[in-house]
Amino acid sequence: MTRPDTTETQQSVRLTIDGAPVEVRPGATLLEACRQMGTDVPTLCYLETLTPVNVCRICVVEVERNRTLVPACSRIAEENMVVKTDSERVRHSRKMILEFLGSSVDLSAAEDEVEDWMRQYQAEPDRYGPQSAPSAAGERDRRHPGHHGEVNGRTAEGVHQPTKVDNTLYVRDYSRCILCYKCVEACGIDAQGTYAIAVAGRGFDARISTEMDLPLGDGACVFCGNCIGVCPTGALMFRSEWELRQAEMWDPDAQEVTRTVCSYCGVGCNLELHTQDNRIVKVTSPQDHDVTSGHLCIKGRFGYDYVQNLGDVDRSSIDEVLAKARRPAPE
């Protein structure tokens, strides 16, 4: 969480990044220092509103006198540190991480920067071989730690599996999950305090799971959708968006975003209504908004059907698809 700066009385910290001196507030991370001087550092598991977990490792930078690279998102800047953000070692690790993710996860719905980084770091995810066949539904959720099947090297093992569609509000497509822990944090300690999901299993079989892999409605989930709001790869998606994508009708270029205030209670959460063909297809909240920090509750995020009662109108084709999203089981 971004906190008000209470350290005015302390001195600032001076360090060198890529040969240039920079002065930052005490307690600032290297990422903050880099951003302050306009140096680009890629991040995937980092988000301003969440506690850094430094697991994706794509933000690693080289710090003199450190044996290994360090994650910029969580490493605190120290006086006289000498940091390199674009050394051979840094570029190599970032490239490999992008290849590891690209060869095991479906990144086609990830934030746009990912594709740019793939080019920038010359990542070639395909060099690990063709993708292994997707797992059967639920198979990855039953794997026991410490054991895995035969490996022949002819395919690159991935996390591909059928999408979990078990409710009318959102889907979980773990073929797209890079295990950045953001949804776990948003569900738990950093935002919602519900703790409906956690990382289960171990190693390559680690996965985001409810208790006993229960369907969302049977567990602790309160459907606030804050996990969707922080997911960087589209693994968590509005059911409406997912149905439109299935029907090949999802068209971000044709969408408008309208900022408004939630009409349910008096808190004043800001909403961003994403509309396509004059229909609300998704709701987000601005991450920099004082009240929400990007987080909402079930009503603000999903309670918009009353403005577009799909049962009463002449059905255009988008309404057909959106109506599907309100049926419990996928068709």
Partner: peptide
């Protein structure tokens, strides 16, 4: 590959890719 905790990407996927290359 069996014993990595799976938390960070280089180790979680790297150990699998090493096994495949071998």
């Amino acid at each position: 590959r069996d014993e990595t905790c799976g938390q960070c990407v280089p180790c979680r996927v790297g150990t699998v890719r090493v096994e495949e290359a071998l």
